[in-house]
Simulated assay, not measured.
Amino acid sequence: MAGHSVLTSFEPGESWFWDVETETFFEGPQLSPPTSRPESQPGPKDKVPTDRRRHLH
């Protein structure tokens, strides 16, 4: 996790923050653009294999 305990989404229309250490969602700061991938760029929905757990180490 590279030493960062806070995660945020990069999906269009999402603006959540998640603290991994406390396992809580919270309102975060206004981030500088870009705050998401372009809507015209496909997301990972069809890119994740259905047997993804088998590929985890």
Rank of each mutant, 00 (worst) to 15 (best):
D51I: 06
P44V: 12
P29L: 14
F26P: 01
T22M: 02
T24K: 15
Q41T: 14
P38M: 02
K45R: 13
T22F: 02
T24Q: 15
F26Q: 00
P44L: 14
P38A: 03
V48Q: 05
V48S: 02
Q41D: 10
F26D: 00
G28L: 04
V48T: 12
P34K: 04
K47Q: 14
T24P: 01
P29M: 10
F26L: 04
G43F: 05
R37G: 05
P34L: 03
K45N: 08
E27K: 10
G28A: 05
F26R: 02
E23I: 01
F25L: 12
Q30D: 14
E27V: 08
P34A: 01
P38R: 00
Q41F: 09
T24H: 04
P34R: 03
R37A: 10
P34M: 00
F25Y: 14
T35M: 08
T24E: 15
T50F: 07
P33I: 06
P44W: 08
V48C: 10
E23L: 03
P42A: 09
T35Q: 11
P29C: 07
Q41A: 12
P44K: 07
E39L: 11
P49E: 10
S32K: 15
Q30N: 11
K47W: 06
S32C: 04
P42M: 04
P42E: 14
T50H: 10
P33M: 04
D46W: 07
E23N: 06
P38V: 01
G28D: 02
T50G: 14
K47T: 09
F26C: 01
P49R: 15
K45Y: 11
P29G: 07
G28W: 00
S32P: 07
D46Y: 07
T35R: 11
K47R: 11
E39F: 07
G28H: 01
E23S: 08
P34G: 02
K47C: 10
T35L: 05
E39Q: 13
E39V: 14
T35N: 11
G43A: 07
K47V: 03
K47L: 14
K45G: 04
Q41C: 07
P33Q: 11
E39S: 15
L31Q: 15
T24F: 01
S40V: 04
K45W: 09
P42T: 11
R37S: 11
Q30S: 14
P29I: 12
S40E: 13
S32D: 15
L31F: 08
P49G: 07
D46C: 03
S32W: 06
E23H: 03
